Amino acid sequence: MPDGVQAIVLCEDLQGWVFARRMLLAMGYENGRIRLSRYKYPAKGGGGSGEQHVRERYPDELRAYRPRAARTKTTLVVLTDADKLTVPQRRKTLEDALEKKALAPRGPEERVALLVPKWEIETWIHFFLDGTTVDEDRKDYPKYEDHEADAAPAAETFGQHARQATTPAQAPPSLVTGLIEARRAL
């Protein structure tokens, strides 16, 4: 269990922050020990790419995570969409960002979870909320803009599956990979 573990979340937008926070709470994290990255996320309508924001700040967050993790229990959760890329390709862009900054890749023992839904987090949200099969190649699932908290039950269910090491039937491939990654935070 993650008793006393501090979690830092690096994400693209408010929906990602709400999802990651509620997931961590469902996994047993204490509310006061979950915080948003010092880089926050681009302002809505600010013209910045959420993916670029995460990719460019991931090396800095990992650099800060490592000495912190040596002193205290810490988890870093990185949530970014694959968009047009495949999930492995998006993960490679994160690895490349580390290499560009001369940082060692994420180690297998590091509590760093890379959550990468195909296209967007709404794919995972609709899978859990609608209880139906989702098409990961579809990018037009309705957003929860200005109602981000409505997706909390989906994040909580995701977190419960991660905590219990279970995978729901008919889960899309990126969600299955996401659950494996989320278990790194336990």
Rank of each mutant, 00 (worst) to 15 (best):
P2N: 08
D3R: 10
D3I: 02
V5R: 15
V5E: 12
A7R: 13
L10V: 08
E12N: 08
E12L: 04
D13K: 03
D13E: 15
L14K: 15
G16I: 08
A20V: 11
R21L: 07
R22V: 02
M23C: 15
L24A: 09
Y29A: 05
N31T: 11
I34W: 03
S37A: 15
K44N: 09
G45N: 06
G46V: 03
E51N: 15
H53E: 13
E56P: 01
R57Y: 11
Y58A: 13
P59S: 02
D60F: 01
L62C: 08
A64G: 07
Y65H: 07
Y65W: 12
P67Y: 02
R68D: 08
A70K: 12
T74D: 06
L79H: 14
L79F: 08
L85F: 06
L85T: 10
T86Y: 02
V87K: 05
V87E: 09
R90Y: 03
L94V: 05
E95Q: 13
L98H: 05
E99Y: 01
K100T: 06
K101D: 07
K101S: 05
A102S: 10
P105V: 04
R106F: 00
P108C: 01
E110Q: 11
E110P: 09
A113M: 12
L114T: 14
V116K: 05
V116P: 05
P117S: 09
P117W: 07
P117Y: 08
K118L: 05
E120R: 13
E122K: 10
T123A: 14
T123C: 14
T123K: 06
W124F: 04
I125M: 11
I125L: 09
F128R: 09
D130W: 01
G131H: 06
T132L: 09
T133R: 13
T133P: 00
V134W: 03
D135L: 04
E136H: 03
R138F: 14
K139I: 01
K139E: 13
Y141S: 13
P142E: 01
P142I: 00
P142A: 00
K143S: 15
D150F: 02
P153Y: 02
E156S: 06
E156D: 05
T157S: 04
T157H: 00
F158V: 07
G159Y: 03
A162G: 12
T166L: 08
T167E: 12
A169C: 00
Q170K: 07
A171F: 01
S174D: 10
S174K: 09
V176P: 04
T177D: 11
T177K: 06
L179W: 08
A182W: 06
A182L: 07
A182D: 12
R183P: 02
